[in-house]
C-alpha cells in the first residue's frame, strides 16, 4: 500500500464572539491510496472542519495548533498542506489533487451559473482538457451518477434540480477531475437507497480504477459497513475510536460508539423505542475536562474520567480506543 495522507496532531480553534473554541483536538489518522475511511460522530463533533482542514479551507477565524501536520503524498512528492499560504499554492490541492463534496449542496453551486458551465470551468482549470472534451466528460459524469437526460441538466441552474439531483451533480463535479483524494461530506443523505447504492458503486469503481482515497463522512453506519475499509469515530473534537470497519461495528469499544450503534433504528423491531444517548453534547465553550464524553457516559469511572484525558489503548493491531476502561490499570 502507498500512503496518501498523514494527519498528525490536528488541532483547530475558532475565534467566536464568545471566545475561542476548540473544534478539533489533537486528531491523528492516516489514509492509504485506494482506501476508504469512514468518519462518524455526533453533530458538531468536528467532522466537517477536520475534512476541510486537509484542504486548508477553514475561514479566517480558524487557528491551527502549532503541532498540526498534514502531508499529502502525490506522485510529484509530498505536499505540506500547513505550509501552503497563497491561494495560488493551494490551487494544486483544491479541486485538483483533492476534491470535496460539501455537506451543503446549495453552497457549492453558484446560483447564477449553470451546472454545466461550472463543471466545465473546473475541468479547464484543473486538467489540460479543452472545452469540448470537458463538456463531454461532464455530461458523461452526470450520466454515471444516475442523472437522466444529462445534456438537459447540464444547461440548468442548481435551484431547478431536486435536492438529490443537486447532490449527485456535485458528486459528478467532484469526481470528474479524478482527484487523488476525495472528501465526501454526507454525500448521499438526500438520495434514495437505490440511487445511493449506485453512487457508492461509482465511487468504489474510481477507487479501484485510479487508486483514489476517500474520506467518507456520514452518520449512516449502514453505509459505512457497506463501503468503508476503516472507520474513525469523533466526539467533541476528539477521535475516540479507530479501526477496521468489521472490528468497530462488531465489537465497538468506546461507550460512545456503543451508544451510536444502539441508537440505530432497527427494522427487525418497529416497536422498539429509539434510544438516544442521554444528555446534550456540551457547548464547545464548555468542553468537559478529562474525557470529553464523561458527562454523558454510562460507564463513567468517576474522578479519573473527569480529570484525566484518556490516551489511546491498542485493542488489536489496527483497532484503538481512547477510554480509561481500557487503560492498563483498569484492565488489571
Amino acid at each position: 500500500m502507498t500512503r496518501l495522507l498523514d494527519v498528525e496532531n490536528l488541532t483547530l480553534q475558532f475565534d467566536t464572539d464568545e471566545g475561542r473554541i476548540t473544534a478539533v483536538d489533537n486528531v491523528s489518522f492516516t489514509l492509504e491510496a485506494g482506501e476508504i475511511m469512514g468518519l462518524v460522530g455526533e453533530s458538531g463533533s468536528g467532522k466537517s472542519v477536520t475534512a476541510k482542514s486537509v484542504m486548508k479551507l477553514n475561514p479566517s477565524n480558524a487557528h491551527y495548533g502549532p503541532e498540526t501536520k498534514i502531508i499529502l503524498h502525490l506522485d510529484s512528492g509530498p505536499v505540506d498542506i500547513m505550509s501552503l499560504q497563497q491561494s495560488k499554492d493551494l490551487q494544486v490541492v483544491r479541486g485538483g489533487a483533492i476534491s470535496m463534496i460539501f455537506q451543503e449542496p446549495m453552497a457549492s453551486f453558484a446560483p447564477a451559473i449553470t451546472i454545466g458551465d461550472q463543471m466545465v470551468e473546473q475541468l479547464m482549470i484543473h486538467t489540460d482538457m479543452g472545452k469540448k472534451r470537458s463538456k463531454e466528460l461532464s455530461i458523461e459524469m452526470l450520466d454515471r451518477v444516475g442523472i437522466s437526460d444529462p445534456s438537459t441538466r447540464f444547461g440548468q441552474y442548481a435551484f431547478e434540480l431536486s435536492g438529490g439531483m443537486r447532490q449527485r451533480a456535485m458528486i459528478a463535479m467532484a469526481l470528474s477531475t479524478k482527484p487523488k483524494l476525495l472528501i465526501a461530506d454526507e454525500p448521499t443523505t438526500a438520495l434514495d437507497v437505490t440511487i445511493q447504492a449506485q453512487v457508492i458503486d461509482l465511487m468504489k469503481d474510481l477507487v479501484t480504477e485510479f487508486g483514489m482515497g476517500i474520506i467518507f463522512i456520514t452518520h449512516d453506519l449502514g453505509v459505512i459497513a457497506q463501503t468503508a475499509d476503516k472507520v474513525a469515530v469523533m466526539y467533541l473534537g476528539r477521535l475516540v475510536e479507530q479501526g477496521l470497519v468489521r472490528d468497530v461495528i462488531r465489537t465497538p469499544a468506546h461507550p460512545y460508539t456503543k451508544g451510536l450503534l444502539a441508537a440505530l433504528p432497527s427494522l427487525d423491531d418497529l416497536d422498539a423505542p429509539l434510544v438516544a444517548i442521554p444528555g446534550d453534547i456540551p457547548s464547545p465553550l464548555e468542553r468537559p475536562g478529562g474525557c470529553v464524553f464523561n458527562t454523558r457516559c454510562s460507564d463513567n469511572l468517576g474522578a479519573r474520567c473527569g480529570a484525566e484525558v484518556p490516551t489511546e489503548s491498542l485493542l488489536s493491531s489496527q483497532h484503538n480506543v481512547a477510554c480509561h476502561l481500557y487503560s492498563e490499570e483498569a484492565i488489571k
Binding site: V40, G41, E42, S43, S45, Q103, G163, E186, T189, A190, H219, L221, G259, L260, A263, L264, P265, P273, L274, V275, A276, I277, I281
Partner: peptide, 16 residues
C-alpha cells in the same frame, strides 16, 4: 428531510 443531516443519536433525540 429534517433529520437527514443528523447523526443517529441526535436523530433519535429529534425524532423523539
Amino acid at each position: 428531510e429534517s433529520v437527514a443531516a443528523l447523526d443517529v443519536s441526535i436523530q433519535a433525540d429529534v425524532l423523539n
